[in-house]
């Protein structure tokens, strides 16, 4: 079940990313609609994070390409905001919540330009939107998991982008933070933002998303929730990996074979 969209906000074409000869995502091809909350789901190690990183151009595609708003990512980078997995950074790093959120402004200011009063008011607003303004001067090492996630979201908000890619924003947060994030996402959608959210909880997925991308190294499905949230497709995603595909991937690694050759 792969539904194609005309004038997609994100178009992924034949994308393959290989880590250390093993494909993390293999020939992914889909289009995504504008202004929706889109879930990316699949078991552990199914390439969800890799997909997000490949869209951002943080990891290089071995084959295929990605277009965001009809352009190469380099041309629209400022309009796309990325929220990495919370556990991907060291929260003992010497910084305050404000310092982290200010990084969101670096996206617009670059390496050299100074932050001004406008930037500071955007940072303040972003902190307020996630209910973290009172924690602005708190050391990040003292934050709970939920507060860390809110700080990361505020950083993404501070970039004032149109498209948001979020890697597991609900992982390891308390119920009240999860609810607050959901409300925030809905508010952002109302403002016309597109949200691509990696998620792992099947129970809540139905309430959060309008569009679903099912991933297990290969693409299983991409389409409106009502059509994709289907027992057979979910079983296909979570139940078993395609055993032949896994065998071929292992052979590539074991025999040192290239995936593509010229």
């Amino acid at each position: 079940m792969i539904k194609e969209i005309k004038e997609p906000v994100i178009e992924v074409h034949n994308l393959t990313v290989v880590y250390d000869r093993k494909p993390a995502i293999w020939n992914i091809d889909f289009t995504l609609p504008k202004g929706q909350i889109i879930g990316v789901m699949g078991p552990n190690g199914s390439g969800k994070s890799t997909l997000l990183k490949a869209i951002m151009g943080v990891v290089n595609a071995n084959t295929g390409w990605v277009k965001v708003a009809g352009e190469d990512i380099e041309g629209v980078r400022k309009r796309v905001s990325y929220v990495p997995q919370r556990q991907s950074v060291d929260w003992d790093f010497p910084a305050t919540v404000w310092d982290v959120v200010a990084m969101g402004r670096f996206a617009l200011k670059g390496v050299f330009k100074k932050l001004n009063a406008d930037d500071r008011s955007v940072i303040e607003e972003s902190l307020k939107k996630v209910n973290m303004y009172t924690f602005a001067n708190r050391q990040i090492s003292q934050l709970s998991g939920g507060q860390q996630q809110r700080a990361f979201l505020a950083r993404a908000l501070a970039q004032e982008a149109d498209i948001y890619l979020m890697d597991e924003p609900f992982a390891g947060v308390d119920a009240s933070t999860e609810e607050a994030i959901v409300q925030l996402l809905k508010q952002m959608k109302k403002e016309g933002k597109t949200l691509l959210v990696v998620h792992h909880d099947l129970h809540t997925a139905q309430n959060y998303f309008e569009w679903l991308v099912l991933l297990n190294t290969r693409l299983v499905a991409s389409g409106p929730l009502t059509e994709v949230f289907d027992t057979a497709l979910l079983e296909d995603t979570y139940g078993g990996t395609l055993t032949t595909l896994t065998k071929v991937a292992e052979l590539l690694d074991k025999n040192d074979m290239p995936m593509r050759h010229k």
């Binding site: 990183k53 151009g57 943080v58 980078r77 990325y82 990495p84 991907s88 060291d90 790093f93 996206a107």
Partner: peptide
């Protein structure tokens, strides 16, 4: 602090 993010915002 966050190399992936630095890459994502085009540093």
């Amino acid at each position: 602090f966050d190399e992936d993010y630095a890459g994502a915002i085009g540093f």
